[in-house]
Amino acid sequence: MSDVSLTIDGVEVTVPEGTTIWEAAARYGIEIPVLCHDPRLEPVGVCRICAVDVGERTLPAACVRHVEAGMNVITANTEITAHRRILTELMLSDQPEQSRREATTGDDSLYALARELKVSDFPWPDAKSSSNPPRGQDDSSPVIAVDHQACILCDRCVRACDDIQHNDVITRTGKGHSVRIGFDLDVPMAESSCVSCGECVAVCPTGALTHQFLGETS
């Protein structure tokens, strides 16, 4: 496979053909924010947070777009930041008031992004308070807490369960606004074939899949 040379934020970059823009940037220490991607997973490009400017009509998602020779990539400018901010605000608009991830392992990527983008008030309606019913929770598992309301449908858990641990338990179910993740044929997690490995919790970027309280016995 031959190498491809391009420019990312003014940096000359040479990477193997077939590398994504996100990977190429990461290799040169340029961090492009992303929610739905994890280097251990096949990228799917659904959250669009990693959108970058390559001089085209639209902003492609860096996690799925392959590098091209001579490409000039801008990873952050006013337009891109505005785009990321609106997406972040929209995702926050139907998040629960408290992030369970902030309270357990502290690594809520959506919150981290919102902090970085200095999000405060936003004009979008609170999705929960409109005609849409709350998406619900599943606390059936003794170790994994599921809060569908915090789920941004990034599919990281689906890919971690299928492609990392190969337990093939998590999938998507429902249509439209009621789309959510499901276990086996949409049974409560504790009744599913889940083996509680916790890989879904490890990759989830929000408070949707978190550890149940496991504080040491007292």
Partner: peptide
């Protein structure tokens, strides 16, 4: 959620190594 105003960092991380 209509506005985002949590603390600077996650409370869970305070004092955790």
């Amino acid at each position: 959620m209509k506005s985002f105003n949590p603390s600077e960092s996650a409370a869970a991380l305070a004092g955790i190594t």
